[in-house]
């Protein structure tokens, strides 16, 4: 739903980093995307492609995603786990753990550029 706004911000960052690196063009953008970031990959690609235009630095750049899960910690079992959606019980003992990572990352890890 808000992918257009995110794509516009993403493009601004990617182009700025590419210019800093003296790039001729951006080939790929690697993103870490939490499973709770509520970003639809297809919609983000769609908007990014159109905003990047035909002649921009990031024109034709491919968005690649690494999904990151939400993580909990069970203090009974002293273990970290990635719970299933809506059911956060520890797979070991069935108790409800505590959140360690909300899995809401929306981070640019690196960009692959041609210089």
């Amino acid at each position: 739903m808000h992918e257009l706004a995110v794509a516009a911000q993403l493009l601004q960052l990617v182009e700025a980093e590419a210019r800093k690196a003296g790039a001729r063009r951006v080939l790929a953008v690697h993103l870490a995307l939490g499973e709770n970031s509520h970003i639809n990959e297809g919609a983000l690609r769609f908007h990014f492609e159109r905003l990047a235009g035909w002649e921009g630095l990031a024109s034709g750049a491919e968005l690649r995603f690494r999904r990151e899960p939400m993580r909990f910690r069970c203090h009974e079992c002293d273990a970290d786990y990635a719970p299933s959606v809506g059911d956060w019980r520890c797979p070991g003992c069935g108790r409800l753990g505590k959140l360690v990572d909300a899995g809401d990352e929306l981070r640019v890890e690196d960009i692959e550029v041609e210089v």
């Binding site: 995110v6 911000q9 993403l10 601004q12 960052l13 990617v14 980093e17 590419a18 800093k20 690196a21 790039a23 001729r24 080939l27 993103l31 929306l106 981070r107 640019v108 890890e109 690196d110 960009i111 692959e112 550029v113 041609e114 210089v115």
Partner: peptide, 18 residues
């Protein structure tokens, strides 16, 4: 020939807003 290079960014995609 052009070289391909990987540039570390490690920033929120919303760095501009931030």
């Amino acid at each position: 020939a052009h070289r391909v290079k990987v540039v570390k960014v490690l920033q929120s995609a919303l760095a501009g807003n931030d």
